[in-house]
């Protein structure tokens, strides 16, 4: 295995393009090293992105959103008060990934690129409307986060493509987001179901909403029908009941060692309701 420490994304792309075998980009390493250890993936070339200027930064965008570098750890996100104030759901989702120790290394970008349908931060990013900047042999482009994962362990990134930053939109007034997952223990598990809700209020009425579900389909999914079920409502009991139904019918889970399809479908509804209520309360300023 060859270990590279490029000083720019362009250099990283060049190294990847000239590499013949298996290539992996390294940021936090909390997935790459586990795969390496298990013998599942032993890259021929490992390209460490942490020496590239700016990758450790969380910066406000001119539009009022946030640009998050690819090597920013979950712990650093959690310590960023302004970001947490704007996007508590995104931050709490990332903070649910792994242990305190894993938080010291794991990154949003890594969580996304791992391609797991159960990745905790991804539903929150999708609900938030986050976008990624991609650089590769074909140049640079932007994508919505929900376009990145294409199946378990698979992404829309081509060979040599790499994400250079994640951008969160401006929070705006009357907004609130939240993420929760269901796991058997209190910590340290992979989500059996995850749900993120991001909404905007005018008065008591929801004017915009995005709802995303994790671990109930081959990829994290944006569920527009779920958003429609609560838009133009005050999240009253009828709206919540409709949301639960829609979330359950949108779920297309499998049964595996972490839960049965029936259970996941059930929980998708429970979580959608609980998370919507939390996001709503946050939007109303009733909760942190």
């Amino acid at each position: 295995m060859h270990y590279h420490t490029p000083a720019s994304f362009e250099e990283a792309v060049r190294i990847a393009a000239s590499a013949g075998g298996v290539t992996r980009f390294l940021a936090g390493g909390t997935d790459v090293l586990v795969q390496l250890r298990a013998g599942a993936v032993t890259p021929d070339d490992l390209i460490d992105l942490k020496h590239i200027p700016g990758v450790h930064d969380i910066a406000a965008t001119p539009q009022g959103g946030w640009r998050i570098g690819v090597a920013v750890s979950g712990a650093e996100l959690g310590e960023h008060a302004a970001l947490k104030r704007d996007w508590p759901g995104v931050v709490e989702a990332m903070e649910l990934v792994g242990s305190t120790q894993v938080q010291g290394r794991a990154t949003l970008t890594g969580n996304l690129c791992n391609g797991s349908p159960a990745a905790d931060s991804v539903p929150a990013l999708v609900a938030a409307g986050a976008r990624v900047a991609v650089t590769g042999p074909q140049g640079s482009r932007e994508m919505a986060v929900e376009q990145v994962p294409t199946g378990p362990g698979k992404t829309a990134l081509g060979p040599g493509d790499l994400i250079t930053a994640i951008t969160l939109p401006p929070r705006g007034a009357g907004g609130g987001d939240a993420y929760q997952r269901f796991i058997p223990r209190t910590e340290m598990d992979i989500a059996v179901v995850g749900c993120a809700v991001n909404l905007t209020l005018e008065g008591d009425v929801i004017t915009q909403a995005r709802v995303a579900l994790g671990a109930v389909a081959p990829t994290v999914m944006l569920v527009p029908e779920a958003a429609e079920a609560i838009i133009s409502t005050t999240l009253d009991s009828d709206a919540l009941e409709a949301l639960v139904k829609v979330a359950r019918s949108a779920a297309r889970p499998i049964s595996d060692k972490r839960g049965t399809a029936e259970f996941r479908t059930d929980i998708a509804g429970v979580l959608a309701r609980r998370v919507a209520e939390l996001a709503y309360a946050r939007a109303k300023g009733r909760a942190k």
């Binding site: 936090g28 120790q101 290394r105």
Partner: peptide
């Protein structure tokens, strides 16, 4: 695999699992 914490160390003051950091890093 970063699941037990027995290898906890501080890296630049930040708590990490030493099994999830490469020596070269």
């Amino acid at each position: 695999t970063g699941d037990c914490g027995a290898c906890s160390v501080l890296l630049d003051g930040r708590l990490v699992s030493a099994c999830l950091v490469l020596g070269v890093e």
